[in-house]
Simulated scan of single mutants.
Amino acid sequence: MSVWFITGTSRGLGLEIARAALAAGHQVVATARNAESVRERLPDADGALLTVALDVTDPRSVHAAVEAAMERFGRIDVLVNNAGSGLLAAVEESDDAAVRALYETNVFGPLAVQRAVLPALRRQRAGHVINISSIVGFATAPGWGVYASTKFAVEGFTETLHAELAPLGIHVTLVEPGFFRTDFLDPASLHTGPDTIDDYASTAGAMRVAAASLNHAQPGDPAKAARAVVEMATAPEPPLRLPLGADTLRAFDAKLEAFRKEMDAWRQVALATDHDLDGDRDTPGR
Score class of each variant (00 low, 15 high):
145 G>N: 02
199 D>R: 14
154 V>S: 06
74 G>A: 05
125 R>C: 05
108 F>V: 07
182 T>V: 03
100 R>H: 11
231 E>P: 07
121 L>F: 00
257 E>A: 14
171 H>V: 02
54 L>M: 08
86 G>H: 05
227 R>S: 13
250 R>M: 06
253 D>E: 13
157 F>I: 09
96 D>R: 13
253 D>L: 03
267 R>T: 14
223 A>C: 11
261 K>R: 15
40 E>C: 09
109 G>L: 06
150 T>Y: 02
229 V>R: 04
84 G>E: 06
20 A>D: 11
205 G>A: 05
127 G>N: 08
220 G>S: 06
121 L>N: 11
178 G>D: 04
23 A>I: 04
52 V>E: 15
40 E>S: 14
151 K>W: 00
210 A>M: 11
65 A>G: 10
125 R>V: 06
39 R>E: 11
157 F>P: 12
37 S>G: 15
147 Y>M: 04
78 V>C: 06
33 R>P: 13
272 A>G: 15
24 A>K: 04
241 R>T: 10
197 I>Q: 10
148 A>N: 05
59 P>R: 02
274 D>S: 14
284 P>E: 03
108 F>M: 10
203 T>Y: 00
1 M>L: 09
40 E>F: 04
184 F>P: 10
132 I>K: 02
113 V>T: 10
273 T>F: 01
213 S>A: 15
180 F>Q: 05
167 P>G: 03
98 A>D: 14
